[in-house]
Amino acid sequence: MQKNIQYKGIVIGGSAGSFSLVSKILSQIKDDFKYPIILCMHRLKHIRSGLVEGLNLKSNLPVVEPYDKQKIEGGKVYLAPSNYHMFVEFDATVSLSAEDVLNHSRPSIDYTFSSAATSFRNKMVGILLTGANKDGAQGIFEVHTKQGYTIVQDPNTCDVDTMTKSALQLFSPNQVLTPEEIVVFLNNL
């Protein structure tokens, strides 16, 4: 990790099964965490509410489902809304899209990672968590190719390791960490 770098954002991707893990990370993250966290999780299309409320119950940081063109601010968690893709724009805003599914997913983790890599380049951290399909692998690889800092959850600690193993077949991330180590990493940024 580059020391003293001012990151523009932390992007986390995981499938629906990563909910408890994301809850755990957000419950243990320090409450003065200064970077924005952009969170893309696979979720049911027709269930609009529940997930953000559930995460807010545990999280030390406020979790919001952003509107299109909403400004990204430090110390907040931005959760991709149900049935929309979520992108990071150059002007540090979120944009949403109802375009077709990618990798059978909307929101697609690949899209979020890819757009963040383009906008933030080396000033981001990408973290890929447990997941049951390959969506997210190509996206975090793009973070890597644009010199972003990349972390993949240790597949031995994943409920389902398809997503993380797909990523590890594409490239070698900066770190492969357990959930506990991911929390320590974030709190030391």
């Binding site: 299109d68 063109k69 809304p81 929309y84 949403l96 109802a98």
Partner: peptide
């Protein structure tokens, strides 16, 4: 508008 759009 869409449920995640707002008037500016």
């Amino acid at each position: 508008l869409g449920i995640k759009e707002r008037i500016l």
